[in-house]
């Protein structure tokens, strides 16, 4: 049961518009950085599936041009190598290129702080947070 809950927590943010006509999945959807590793250098696997065959393009926040377009397709995938240090999105659009059909946000989580006091140690075994 606990495994199921964990699995849902991981997968839920990665599935966009699951009930709609376009499904977009991105893995991973969480990038963790800190002082020693200020960027994530990752390969993002993007998977999409539509109920209708058509012309679709994949975009992200880093440029106006599409990463890739598919003609007369109803599914596709792309591996996108990227170095990031801020939250960004992938989205699918159709012919009109106006409204996203599905969108997934990749979160960037900084785990440390510039404030050293937040790293104070209390010598208690239960101090794990």
């Amino acid at each position: 049961m606990r495994r199921l809950v964990i699995l849902l927590l991981i997968l839920l943010p990665a599935i966009s518009n699951a009930d709609g006509e376009m499904q977009l999945k991105v893995r991973p959807v969480l990038c963790i950085i800190d002082q020693r590793t200020p960027h994530c250098q990752m390969s993002f696997l993007v998977l999409w599936q539509s109920v209708e065959t058509g012309y679709y393009c994949l975009y992200n926040d880093f440029g106006q041009a599409p990463l890739r377009c598919w003609t007369e397709q109803r599914s596709g995938k792309l591996s996108d190598e990227r170095t990031v240090n801020r939250e960004f999105s992938y989205w699918m659009a159709g012919d009109d290129n106006q409204s996203p059909l599905a969108m997934v946000v990749v979160e960037v989580l900084r785990m440390d702080s510039n404030d050293r006091r937040r790293k104070r140690r209390s010598r208690h075994v239960w101090d794990i947070l």
């Binding site: 200020p38 960027h39 880093f62 990031v84 240090n85 801020r86 702080s113 510039n114």
Partner: peptide
Amino acid sequence: DETSGASAQGASTPGPQQAASSE
């Protein structure tokens, strides 16, 4: 110091300075 050291492939990056101020 941290902001000057930050770089990323992609569009405008807010960098740690914004992250720190929003903490």
